[in-house]
Amino acid sequence: MSLIAAALAVSLSAAVPTVEAQPAPTQTTFEGWINFSGQEFQLVENQNRYVTGARRPCVSGSLPRDLQRMSAQTIGRQKVRVTGTAMAWSSDLPGNRYEYQGSVLRNECGADFVILGTDISVIQ
């Protein structure tokens, strides 16, 4: 290998960025009274606030599209447990929305984070 080819190979290998492994998001459970609005849901922590119609403060979230649709039809105005991950909300998102597995999340609650849900169950 010529000296020029060796120098080029070394400089090319040095220019390739290394990717460090990122930890997987931690699954968390969120509990509250649920309201569905379009392709997202809102969780309200306090039952009294929910019953009286005070929907804020709340946390917006979404489930994968088919689970979101099914849940909106079968679960409503009940206390639920949502398993998922929290994602920091940014006003820099294109269209001020986030598409999560077919559902459009607009953060109607306006909180600093939203819930990307993977599972939902009613708490009896």
Rank of each mutant, 00 (worst) to 15 (best):
W89A: 09
G95E: 04
S2H: 08
D92R: 15
L116F: 12
Y98T: 00
Q78C: 01
A7Q: 15
A24Q: 10
L67C: 03
L105D: 01
A14I: 04
P57K: 12
E31Y: 07
G38E: 07
I75W: 01
M87C: 03
M1S: 14
F36L: 00
A9Y: 13
D92G: 15
T29G: 06
N96D: 14
V19K: 06
F113T: 09
A88L: 09
Y100L: 06
G32L: 06
A14S: 12
F113G: 04
M70P: 00
E45F: 10
V19Q: 07
I120L: 03
A6I: 14
P57E: 13
P23G: 02
F113S: 14
P94G: 09
G117V: 04
G84Q: 08
Q68T: 00
R65T: 07
N107R: 02
S37A: 07
F30Q: 09
F36N: 00
F41G: 00
N35W: 03
A7T: 14
I34P: 00
A54V: 15
G95Y: 05
S11A: 14
T74R: 07
Y100R: 06
F41V: 05
S90R: 11
L63P: 00
D92W: 15
V16Y: 02
R56H: 14
F30M: 09
A24P: 02
T26W: 11
P23S: 05
K79S: 02
S13L: 10
S62G: 14
I4E: 12
P64Q: 13
T26F: 12
R69L: 03
I120F: 02
T28H: 11
M87H: 05
M70N: 08
C58A: 14
R69V: 01
R81W: 05
P57M: 13
N96K: 10
A6R: 13
G84F: 05
Q68E: 04
N96Y: 10
A7E: 14
G61P: 09
V104H: 00
Q39I: 00
I34L: 03
C109T: 04
I75T: 03
Q68P: 01
L116G: 03
S103I: 00
D112V: 13
A24K: 10
N35A: 07
L116V: 09
A6M: 12
A14F: 08
R56W: 11
E20H: 11
R49P: 04
I34F: 02
S2D: 12
V51C: 07
S71P: 02
V10F: 08
Q78F: 01
L67Y: 01
T118A: 13
L43F: 09
E40T: 02
R56K: 15
R56N: 14
I75S: 02
A21I: 06
G32C: 02
V16R: 03
L93W: 14
S71K: 00
T29W: 08
V59N: 05
M70C: 04
E108K: 04
P64D: 10
D66I: 06
G102Y: 03
Y98S: 01
L3Q: 15
E40H: 03
A7M: 14
S91W: 14
S62R: 04
L63C: 06
A15F: 05
E108V: 03
R69D: 04
R81G: 09
R55F: 09
A9H: 12
N107I: 07
V51F: 11
A14N: 10
V51K: 09
F41E: 04
